[in-house]
């Protein structure tokens, strides 16, 4: 932690910054010092489940993903491994910088979209369906290679898309007319009925959710929150969801990836 941040935290971050006239530390910066993963708000038992690979159900999907990584697929009859080799080396850090800039379309592409592109273009296979067990397995296998690495999805070419994600995060939605920011920025740490409202960081995905009794993508989580405020969720793979992911990743910049995380 850098000097001024530690100093500010001792005094209560934003308020102190304003009071002391430390204008070089913006509100975003002050908030960053207090960021918490959803992991930090979980019970000890659920934390232990995530930490222990033999107890973490998400690891079953990682194993399945590894098998898929080595399997020849499509008209090209090629395995991911034939082009990318050892995932521990070639995929290390890849999830930490997705959604990434896609030169072909000059738009952001998420990890799932990237993997499906390889299936179609490089393997001559059909894209895996969104939220299918196969897509979740390969995605979590790739994401697992970045476990513990800091989120670093800051490609400047994506700035306009990131800004749109920020706008969507602040937009009130649905019959209940609530924005993501009203819960995850303004009310994080308080209780919505039984659940602590987390800060809403994307660091654990794909993750095993006890409520789902299965693995799910970040987009599934975002669509859940959208349905929760009684709005019509954006479609899987839509520009809006990728832009929201992009914004969430930059908001979580520097936090450690956890995939496969566990959540209640």
């Amino acid at each position: 932690m850098r000097g001024p941040e530690r100093f500010l935290r001792r005094f209560g971050a934003g308020v102190a910054a304003a009071a002391l006239g430390l204008s070089f530390v913006g509100a975003d910066e002050a908030r960053r010092t207090e960021r918490r993963s959803g992991f930090d708000d979980m019970s000890r038992e659920t934390q232990a489940m995530q930490r222990d690979d033999t107890a973490n159900p998400g690891m079953l999907w990682v194993q399945e993903g590894e098998a898929l990584w080595n399997r020849k697929e499509g008209t090209a009859a090629r395995a991911c491994a034939e082009c990318h080799g050892d995932a521990a080396a070639s995929m290390r850090g890849v999830a930490a910088r997705h959604p990434a800039f896609d030169p072909a379309t000059e738009q952001p592409i998420g990890l799932e979209g990237r993997i499906n592109r390889c299936r179609q273009v490089h393997q001559g296979a059909d894209a895996f369906a969104w939220e299918s067990q196969d897509l979740l397995a390969v995605t979590v296998f790739v994401a697992h290679q970045s476990r513990g690495m800091p989120v670093a999805a800051e490609d400047p070419r994506l700035a306009p898309f990131r800004e749109n994600g920020r706008r969507l995060f602040g937009e009130r939605l649905g019959q209940l007319d609530l924005s993501c920011a009203q819960c995850h920025d303004d009310n994080a740490g308080k209780r919505l009925a039984g659940s602590v409202v987390p800060q809403g960081h994307p660091t654990g995905y794909p993750l095993y959710r006890l409520e789902w009794q299965g693995l799910g993508s970040l987009q599934r989580r975002l669509r859940n929150c959208m349905a929760g405020v009684r709005s019509e969720p954006h479609a899987y793979g839509s520009a809006a969801l990728v832009e929201l992911e992009l914004f969430l990743m930059s908001r979580a910049g520097g936090m450690a990836l956890e995939a496969p995380a566990v959540r209640p």
């Binding site: 937009e171 939605l173 649905g174 009310n187 009684r230 709005s231 019509e232």
Partner: peptide, 18 residues
Amino acid sequence: IMPSYYRVDGLTRVGPGW
């Protein structure tokens, strides 16, 4: 953050059922 319980205008992307 308290919803307006008896209002239907000025809302965005309300789900089909609502």
